[in-house]
Simulated scan of single mutants.
Amino acid sequence: MTEINFLHNNSQDQTFLLLGFQGLYSYRFLVFTIFIIVYILILCGNVLIILVIVSNGLLHSPMYFFLSNLSLLEIVCTTEIIPVMLQIILRNGTRLSLSGCLIQLYLFGTFFATESFLLTVMSYDRYLAICRPLHYSSIMHFRFCCYLVLASWTSSFLMMSVVIGFLSQQDYCRQINTIDHFFCDLVPVLGLSCSDTTKVKMAIYLLSPLSVLIPFMFISVTYVSIIRSVLNIQSVIGKKKAFSTCSSHLTVVCIYYITLYMVYVVPTNGSSLQVKILSLLYTVITPMLNPFIYSLNNREIKAGIKLSLNWKIKREKVPK
């Protein structure tokens, strides 16, 4: 990875040793194969959703525009984490430069916050569709959707720039800093600093509610309104149809915040293995499950996949 220009000159040659899964080295080829398969499933599942949405005109709506951005986010996020993790598995650990570690942390934090914002935007979209259907088309036009997505990405990049800016000014006590993890996460990197971390922690305490707590509260409020509106629908079929439009998103939101709570709130009693297993939930398992959740619980996505497959079969049968 290239060096970033805001690092101290005397820290350029410092490295971070990622230990990864030390106890599984004897089974490294099996573990490597499993994660390669998982990575392929993540790429194929999310790319398939993007292609189906782009190629099917019936899916050119705000909800699926946000979903395609979420799938793109899952692709780039796992691509930033899993290849390094595969290298760690084969080598029983790997080294990253200080700048490389901070770049990985910067990208991971940005993608993590962007997912929170995109899930919030998607909940607002479902709120308007179910609770304010007469105003939906006038509010959720394409330009406004683009602004929401752009704001999600831009705000995440800016917030992480502040954190990394303070973090890059820290002094690290050792030339080789050991991290018992499979990627450069904020807590272990900050724990290796031997200088005053007040500014970094203050930035984290101020920015974390903006990227996690406030979006969670907004999503909760919108879904309370959605559930009330669905319960007021007289027809049973109408209730099922209304709930089906947001069930996939609600499932993904629950998985996202439950894993977030388990990783960063539930005490781990100092167990590095427990931290790694919980970290795998939101870095690997959740991105793999999301395409299945949206495809299995969504009639339009399943219909789009079938339509794309039928079009491909018919095209292959056409004589050349």
Rank of each mutant, 00 (worst) to 15 (best):
A113F: 13
I255W: 06
Y261P: 00
L150A: 15
K306P: 00
V266R: 11
L207R: 02
D185A: 15
G20P: 02
F182P: 03
P209C: 06
L128W: 11
M140Q: 05
T78Q: 05
A129R: 11
I82E: 05
F21Y: 15
I75S: 05
V224P: 00
I313S: 13
L186W: 03
L273D: 15
M217T: 06
P291F: 05
E74M: 15
L167N: 01
E3Y: 09
K276H: 05
Y264G: 07
N177V: 10
D125C: 14
I88E: 13
N5T: 11
G165L: 09
P209W: 08
V318I: 15
S123G: 07
T268W: 00
T245N: 02
G270D: 06
V54Y: 12
M217Y: 10
L289A: 13
Y147M: 09
L148M: 15
F157N: 01
M122G: 10
I313A: 14
I103A: 04
F108W: 13
V31K: 02
L43H: 05
S123V: 03
Y294D: 01
I301F: 04
Q274Y: 08
C101D: 06
K239T: 03
N269R: 09
D185I: 01
R315D: 13
Y124R: 14
Y136S: 00
Y124M: 13
Q22T: 15
